[in-house]
Design a protein around this nucleic acid. Structure first.
Lengths: 125, 125
DNA sequence: CAGAATCCTCTGAGATACTG
DNA sequence: CAGTATCTCAGAGGATTCTG
């Protein structure tokens, strides 16, 4: 899967815009919701599947691995039978909390706005 | 281009996660940086091109139109020769400012973290 | 200057089947 | 339970050319 660190073939510190950097890390199709659910605590693999019926095992694994690679989440493997794996935010991942929360708040206001007036797509600036 | 309001074939208010909703609106490849640049004021079409050499005319137009459709930006056309079009945030678009800014701050800390220790991809939670 | 129209290329994402 | 391993494909993203 794409090493999103190399969009321009340069190291990420050469990328001009930090907003883009953040989007690159949390912008995956399911990463927003995964992170949001992790704010409430540790989750297991099948717990994510139950919470998000739309996501396939494959994609879930992929998104989790990318978040792990980026240092956002931690993957704890318990050597048991049956196997158990728990996902949690790293300390660094926790620093995303204000970002996620502001996105949550805004998303809610956006949906409210759509419901209030579904036809309006633009307003005067 | 995808009507991202219909990921599940349902109206957006049926989508469970507001974080995803926000990502759907601002998660386009160039939307983060476009919005960030608009925080500083009105921009013209070729101004965006100069600021972001990597983006093609086509993609720029597309991203701007989607943001306009979603009520985030306003497109003011001046009937002149040569033509002039100015883009600005709508009032509603301005409500994205805290989101963008928190993403900017986080993106900077992420890049700093990479520079400090490029090999570390994970830390203990 | 600010686009519109075409055509093309990847890759993010999904379906399905199998396994330690 | 928590994953791999393949295969497939739509569609986001891009290059190029043309125009009011």
């Amino acid at each position: 899967m794409g090493d999103r660190r190399n969009k321009y073939g340069v190291s990420p510190d050469m990328q001009a815009c930090p907003v883009e950097t953040t989007l690159d890390v949390i912008g995956g199709k399911w990463k927003g919701i995964i992170l949001y659910q992790l704010l409430n605590g540790t989750r297991r693999f099948n717990e994510f599947r139950r919470l998000n019926p739309g996501i396939t095992q494959f994609m879930l694994t992929l998104q989790l691995r990318e978040l792990e690679r980026d240092g956002i989440i931690h993957r704890e493997i318990y050597k048991e039978v049956p196997p158990r794996v728990e996902y949690s935010l790293t300390d660094f991942g926790r620093t995303l909390e204000p970002v996620i929360m502001s996105m949550k708040v805004w998303g809610e206001s956006y949906k409210m706005r759509l419901n209030e007036n579904p036809t309006i797509q633009e307003e005067e600036s």
